[in-house]
């Protein structure tokens, strides 16, 4: 199953990549492959912007504008004039 392409929020800088493979290890949608000792985002249209790769890349080779793809959170954010929020951690809120 594929969703809309996330190319505008996903940046990969091959020069900084050392090919350590951490991104391959953490990506839940198999976006990366190691090719010629460097990571290659071969399936970037599968990216769901969870941010796992960027958070775990020690070399700053990856930038992801991360977030949770939840319509309820986006709408709540629109209504409150804030960033998307689903109140997951609140005591009364419903969860994503």
């Amino acid at each position: 199953m594929k969703y809309f392409r996330a190319s505008d929020t996903f940046q990969f800088n091959a020069e900084k990549c050392t090919g350590c493979g951490r991104c391959v290890e953490v990506c839940p949608h198999n976006v990366f492959k190691i090719e010629n000792r460097k990571a290659a985002p071969v399936n970037s249209d599968r990216c769901m912007e969870c941010g796992a790769c960027a958070e775990n890349c020690e070399f700053g080779a990856l930038i992801v504008k991360r977030g949770v793809g939840c319509a309820a959170a986006v709408i709540t954010g629109l209504l409150r004039g804030t960033e998307p929020t689903c109140d997951c951690s609140g005591p009364s809120g419903k969860c994503c």
Partner: peptide, 17 residues
Amino acid sequence: FTGATTYTSLSGVKKEI
């Protein structure tokens, strides 16, 4: 249901909305 799936992205959901 986007909030419950395992593959939807924030930018995509924003686009849909």
